[in-house]
């Protein structure tokens, strides 16, 4: 178990085990995240990386182990879950914008209905964040009228509206056409520079190299290796990581 300076650990995962029926999806995961850290989780498909971060905001339930987020322990308690979800925001692979609402309404929904803000306040804040991700002019449009890259940026802005302490990214660029990936990564880089805690599941190794404090490699449901970016790529210790890097890096750059 990581014990370095527990006080500033904003996420603490210990002995986490999850099964899908008989399938052992997450095996004895131990992980801590300090406030402001940027963590990238990578690994082959089926390794459990999405499952892991979805456990953090209780979109997936787990059978054994312990997760503490921002000082609150994650159990099947509706109040606690709601509290945690207002501190933790998630950006999905398929954006999941609400198609029947305008862009700006997508953003103001949570502030109005969960945080009891006034319509004016919420709208002002929404427009500000839309400006942040450089998409202000689309405010009154509907999600299906936007491109994938634009939709994902809106999704990021939507997450920011709840002023989260932690942001989870579940393969945010995997569903995008290549020319749109950079516009989303640019936004993520900006966010990273501002000090928000981020956990990203992604294949974008350029982003990992540039921005991550730590990269975690998962395979077959367990954490195999973790390291700082420099050593992660230059000195992979385990065989599986070496294999993984050899497979993806030949296609990168």
């Amino acid at each position: 178990m990581e014990t370095e300076n527990n006080k500033s650990n904003i996420i603490e995962i210990s002995e986490l085990n999850k099964w899908y029926g008989d399938f052992h999806a997450l095996k004895n995961i131990n992980m801590s995240v300090k406030e402001g850290e940027i963590i990238v989780v990578c690994g082959p498909s089926g390794s459990g990386k999405s499952t892991l971060i979805r456990c953090v905001n209780f979109l997936e339930k787990f059978q054994e182990g312990n997760i503490v987020v921002a000082g609150i322990e994650l159990t099947d308690d509706a109040q606690k879950i709601r509290k945690i979800r207002s501190e933790v925001a998630m950006v999905f692979q398929h954006f999941n914008l609400f198609p029947h609402l305008t862009i700006v309404d997508n953003l103001t929904l949570a502030p109005i209905w969960v945080h009891n803000e006034t319509k004016e306040e919420a709208r002002e804040k929404a427009l500000k964040f839309l400006e942040r991700v450089d998409i202000r002019e689309q405010a009154e449009k509907y999600p299906n009228q936007l491109s994938g890259g634009q939709q994902q940026r809106v999704a990021i802005a939507r997450s920011l509206c709840t002023s989260p302490k932690i942001m989870l990214f579940d393969e945010p660029t995997s569903a995008l056409d290549p020319e749109m990936i950079s516009e989303v990564l640019d936004v993520m880089v900006e966010l990273a520079k501002e000090g928000i805690t981020m956990i990203c599941v992604t294949h974008e190794m350029g982003f990992a190299r540039k921005m991550a404090n730590r990269i975690i490699f998962m395979d077959e449901g367990q954490i195999v290796e973790e390291n700082d970016p420099v050593n992660f790529f230059k000195n992979p210790e385990s065989d599986r990581l070496q294999l993984f890097l050899s497979q993806i890096l030949t296609h990168d750059e």
């Binding site: 709601r82 979800r85 999905f92 398929h94 999941n96 029947h100 929904l109 209905w113 969960v114």
Partner: peptide, 26 residues
């Protein structure tokens, strides 16, 4: 879409709010 309910949950809406604002309209 299943993702709609997940997104609604992720931004903190209760079951009832999610039903009323997101699921039923669609």
């Amino acid at each position: 879409d299943k993702g709609q309910k997940e997104a609604a949950a992720a931004i903190g809406l209760t079951q009832t709010q999610s039903l009323k604002l997101i699921v039923l309209p669609q």
